[in-house]
Amino acid sequence: MTATDPAPLAEGPPAAGSPTGARTPAAGRGLGGPAVALLRNRRARAGLVLIALVALFCFAGPLFYRTDQVTVHLDLAELPPGGGHPLGTDANGYDVLGRLMAGGRSSLELGFAVAVATTVVGTLYGAFSGYVGGVTDSLMMRVVDTFLAVPGLVLLLIMVSMFSPSLGGIILLLSLLSWLSPARLVRGEVLTLRTREFVQAARMMGGTGPRVVLRHLVPNAAGVVIVSATFTVADSILMLSTLSFLGLGLPPPNADWGTMLTGGLDFLYDGYWWLVYPPAALLVLTVVAFNLLGDALHDALDVRLKRT
């Protein structure tokens, strides 16, 4: 009733002779709309730029700056920055700058892999649970609650202490713990979408369950899913560093920022700053970037998301 309404009447299709003809469609629910809204958002731009820079550094960097990240050179250990090592070397004689690139690769790969895996599993689980409803839904959600009740780190510690896994293993373990949140979110979204009239219309036309889920429910829950996936990237990178701190990270000679940071922290009070602050800065920057992007996506896609 007020002029602050989004004024849907002002957004008619560009029909010939219609007064709205010259106007471009405003930002909205289609595909172009959120992208435009997103790019207008300062947080989103900052996040995207940071992510692009980090990715460039990690993946394109080694093409220009080649280092040996496999052989231990104890004679070259803990050199301060300068000479052939712009950021010095670490306790094993690895070049820190080169190791940052290598560590970033595993962090990013892990983050994305976990995000993709959990998104797929969580979305299907949540959508199915919410669509079926009833006792099945109730049981499926109790399973999720059970996993959520035991803190992720606790489960991880138990599992990692048994397997001492590789990158792939850690991806698998983190995925096992991270699908819960998207599953809950998607279910919640599906429960509200189910009552929406367009879903009822599809059912009334004789649309089958899979059709309703895949054509209507999942695409409309996509906003929630994308936001949650973005946060999952950030959380997984963070969790990997925590595991590294507890000595349960990637086994050598793999590099990751958390292990570098933990190793450097032993020398923090002795002035070996190049072993601490570069990995810390990159780690925090990357995680902040994904969080900013997720938060902006959340606004752009207009999702009500409970971050758990």
Partner: peptide, 23 residues
């Protein structure tokens, strides 16, 4: 409710074809 009876993520063409596809 004309705001909730059409799937916001489908183009109008797809919305109109859907009943034909279902059957």
């Amino acid at each position: 409710d004309p705001f909730s009876s059409l799937d916001p993520r489908m183009r109008v063409g797809a919305i109109l074809r859907e009943p034909l596809q279902i059957h």
